[in-house]
Design a protein around this nucleic acid. Structure first.
Lengths: 228, 228
DNA sequence: ACCGTCAGGTTAACGGTGTCAACCTGAGCG
DNA sequence: CGCTCAGGTTGACACCGTTAACCTGACGGT
């Protein structure tokens, strides 16, 4: 059980082992309460205070775990970019929600924890940058307008809302998971596309409904394969 | 400091005092870590294990606090219902986000905590029911279609995503708060209105952009006062 | 070949937490 | 008056994050 002491100059390798141990604990226990300094150290085969050789406190360890998760999310986005922009954004969005639902504990500590250190961490900025890229690409085709960062934040909000609500309140009357993902992605996309085009003061409800009906009917006439 | 012992048959009044103490602690400290059984008991002028006379464990106390918050949210919805449905839904949505941002700690323990007990708590169901009502009213005017509960869940997801992201990740490049609220509410509304009207397979991006442009131009011609 | 240094840990302890078993106490009844 | 039992209190336990003090053995210098 006891880990063999690292050789000189290789002390930093314990840091990685601690992080891996922490991720394993999270994944296995399914609760962040299982993420104890004592448990992490024990799993790494090391005494508890040894954690403090590489992390200032527990918060620093958790934040390091979060950076790893941000890295995974960023990689996920990068792999889904490319090709026709509108479907690419759809793929990114779907991948995001699926990641969140497949790794609920990691996602929870990532997003639902009061960020102690101020400023956007680099790994998070990179992941967010990829999402901004996806949105920017959509703008070049003309289907979405506005400030890319702002639109990306709005889309992120929608995705995060769906994912985190499903994770935190599983007992709500959720519809089928894939259907909901589909719905959220399309609602966010359509809404964003329309937002910048509509005037600030809208016509009364009946008028509005009629216009939406007209657009729907018109679009139903032509068919294609671009499905965000 | 010491609370006078309750008279016979009025032991339940300590329960309310404990809940109030817990809410005060949460609001004053601004961190859920301040919600300690010892601190709650001390503020209520009572010894720590006295909490166990009314709550099975700490989790039960926290859940009871959540029920109070759900109640406030439900009341907020109820007060904003009525009148023209589309603007009413907008008011509800704005009130929701403002409540979340004005009570970040309470909102965090409400929504970002793994719900221990299974099933939807009654207070939550009531609050959600009000939102379903708002959506249903919008459907009767014809501006939104689909299953009311499902649409309400989608709207809730959007609101929650915006609120919780702003709370949990304040260091992101957020735009002006009111502008963002406005954006999210309208995006969710427009997106939902369009979702059920558009075919599953969409035309290519340029075609899509042209149609959206046309709708925007057409709506810009008429002006009204209905602004969700 | 020896030795001192210091990176890479360990042991022991402290204060704070949730929780439980055991004990107390005094208001209200007969 | 005396009994009872609702409404608490005391004391203790295991576990948590965190710190100070100590150990140890691989390496560079001689």
């Amino acid at each position: 059980m006891r880990r063999v002491r690292a050789r000189r100059g290789e002390g930093a390798q314990l840091r990685e082992e601690l992080l891996s141990a922490a991720e394993e604990l999270l994944a296995e226990a399914g609760t962040e309460e299982a993420l104890t300094l004592r448990a992490v150290a024990a799993r790494a085969g090391v005494s508890t205070p040894a954690v403090y050789l590489h992390f200032a406190d527990k918060e620093a360890l958790v934040e390091a775990v979060c950076m790893r998760v941000w890295g995974e999310l960023g990689r996920l986005f990068r792999d889904n970019l490319g090709g026709d922009p509108w479907p690419a954004m759809g793929r990114c969005a779907r991948a995001y929600i699926r990641f969140a639902l497949d790794h609920p504990v990691q996602y929870r500590v990532l997003m639902m924890r009061p960020s102690a250190s101020p400023g956007v961490p680099p790994a998070a900025a990179e992941a967010f940058g990829h999402m901004v890229d996806a949105v920017s690409a959509c703008m070049e085709t003309g289907v979405v307008e506005g400030d890319p960062a702002e639109v990306a934040l709005g889309l992120w909000s929608a995705l995060h809302g769906c994912a985190s609500l499903m994770i935190a309140q599983p007992s709500f009357p959720w519809p089928d998971r894939e259907a909901l993902i589909d719905r959220v992605v399309r609602v966010a996309g359509f809404g964003t596309a329309l937002y910048s085009r509509l005037p600030r003061d809208l016509p009364p409800s009946e008028e509005l409904a009629a216009r939406f009906d007209a657009l729907g009917a018109e679009l139903a006439a032509g068919e294609g394969q671009s499905s965000p």
